[in-house]
Amino acid sequence: MLFKATPLIFTGLSVAFAFRAGMFNIGAEGQMNIGAFAAAWAGFTFTALPWVIHIPISICFAFAGGALWALIAGYLKARVGSHEVINTIMLNFIALALVSYLVNSVYNVPATVRTPEISPSAHIPRFDSITGFFSGSPFNMVFIIGICVCLLTGYIIRNTPLGYEIRTSGFNRDAAEYAGMNIKKLTVLSMTVAGGFAGLSGLNFVNGYKHYFELGFSEGTGYMGIAVALIARNNPIAIIPVAVFFGILEYGGLTVNTLVPKEIITIIQALTILSAITITELFRRRVSLE
């Protein structure tokens, strides 16, 4: 359950962060694939490193992979003004094709659609191996990283001049420009960081669970991040409980998997999300009318 919530924290945060800067990041799916592959590559390429170095390096690679991918979309928007929704959707296709090529033709393990396993020094430990709680669950320390990143992002957005600039540019670009802010720089920066967050979500699967990169691992988590961000009203802290709620839905689906058709589960999940969005929206309107 919390294992399922972990990647949603990152993709939700990614979408929310871009939203705060006035952009719609549909590309979390692609960024997360690139990030996950980068983390896997760092995992199986560097083999002689102690874990204290290898794990941070893997984290950096995951972030950098997603960030680089989103940088393209952000740069295109800032430079030629092409809309980030189109940019990120197209980059999703390219990202999936790219990792598919890399997995199938360059780093292939025969008869599979996955990369070689990463070195044990890059494994991010599971909770049950450290604490004894959550035994049998692949729930791992990436969740803690997620919480830290959310808290840090929340602090930056709220309390720093940079965060203030990001919020301003997200609400009112003209006012931001008149106030002397560099909109283009902010656009590229926010998109890049948002991509980095999405990239980190690959750690959960690659370093925390299977220890390799496998095609199709993301299962739409990037898109689900949009719903998470919406319900959390783009608040980095609120992302955490909302992601956990979505994790519960996913997990519940897996539990009753043998009893009901998969489609029913999907429909129920979708209905739950729709109702949650509607209810929060209605509630908000009630409050604002008050």
């Binding site: 203030y164 600039e165 301003t168 609400f171 009112n172 003209d174 006012a175 008149y178 106030a179 002397g180």
Partner: peptide
């Protein structure tokens, strides 16, 4: 155009005071 260029509607009075002076 005050609403378009001078203020951020979603901000409080003090956050609007900060606009352009935040550095």
């Amino acid at each position: 155009d005050r609403l378009k260029e001078g203020i951020v509607k979603e901000f409080s009075v003090e956050e609007n005071i900060l606009l352009g002076r935040h550095r």
